[in-house]
Amino acid sequence: MRQEACTGQCRQRADMPPATNITSPRSESDHASATAGMSGGRERRASRQTQVAIIQKLVAQLFDLGCQGALGAGTAARRPGCHMRQITMYLCRVVLSMPYQHIAEAVGRDRSTVIHGCAAIEDRRDAPDYDAFMDRCEQCVRVVFGQADEDCDVARS
């Protein structure tokens, strides 16, 4: 019989089976699959971090080119490191559809920082020159990660 605490008193419950502590030893195959699941998580995390690192390098190059032309001096004067990180976070979210938490882990920031960064980039897209720059960035990321759109001017074989 199992006992149940109710208002400080114990009573017997006949409808409940007795509680037992069942600890069966894992077989080697169970242990191997659990270990593979953990390493799979590490591999996915490493893959995300690699994707983010590639996008960061791409954004740095595009940002330098953009500041020389379409973006102008105002954008170059803003904290460029922060701005490039926000662009990276935005591209990871919009183009690669990464969850905010995964992006945050990859860039070493909090989830709320990623949300703010994405919103900041979205707000800046109201300016036509900045919107054109971000469209180019999105196209470049799609080409690099094999997600080219039909309207992209990339020759396909």
Rank of each mutant, 00 (worst) to 15 (best):
V144Y: 03
P99G: 14
T7G: 11
R111E: 11
T113Y: 06
V95Q: 06
E4S: 09
A119P: 01
G40T: 01
T113K: 03
K57Q: 11
A155D: 10
A5H: 08
C152Q: 11
C67Y: 01
K57V: 06
A53H: 02
H102N: 12
V141Q: 04
T88H: 04
L71F: 00
R109W: 00
A36K: 07
E105C: 05
G117W: 02
D126T: 13
V95F: 08
K57R: 13
D135W: 04
Q86V: 02
R79E: 14
G108T: 07
F63W: 13
Q12C: 15
G81W: 04
V95H: 01
P80L: 04
P25N: 09
C6Q: 12
L65S: 12
V59Q: 03
A60I: 03
N21Y: 14
N21P: 05
S29P: 00
V107R: 03
P18I: 01
Q61N: 10
A19H: 08
V59W: 03
V94M: 12
I54D: 11
E150V: 08
G69N: 07
S24H: 11
Q147C: 04
D30E: 11
R11N: 04
M98W: 04
G69F: 10
G117K: 00
I55W: 01
A5N: 04
A104W: 06
V94D: 13
T50A: 15
V144W: 02
M1T: 15
M89F: 08
R142H: 08
T35L: 14
F63N: 00
S39F: 08
S33Y: 06
Y100C: 01
F133W: 14
F145E: 06
A119T: 03
P18S: 06
R142D: 03
T35P: 04
A127Y: 08
S47K: 11
V144Q: 05
V95S: 10
A19P: 12
D135S: 14
P99N: 15
A19S: 09
C140D: 09
E28F: 14
T50F: 14
A148S: 14
L96N: 03
D153M: 10
I55M: 00
C140E: 12
M134R: 09
R78T: 12
A127I: 11
R93I: 01
P80M: 02
V143N: 11
G108W: 00
L96C: 03
A46L: 09
D110E: 12
S112R: 13
H102E: 15
Q68K: 06
L58V: 07
S27F: 03
E105S: 08
A34S: 04
N21M: 11
S27A: 05
T7N: 15
H116T: 14
D64Y: 11
A46Y: 00
A148P: 06
L96H: 10
S33F: 10
P128Q: 02
C118I: 04
M98G: 05
A5I: 09
Q139Y: 00
D30S: 05
V154A: 07
R142I: 09
D135T: 13
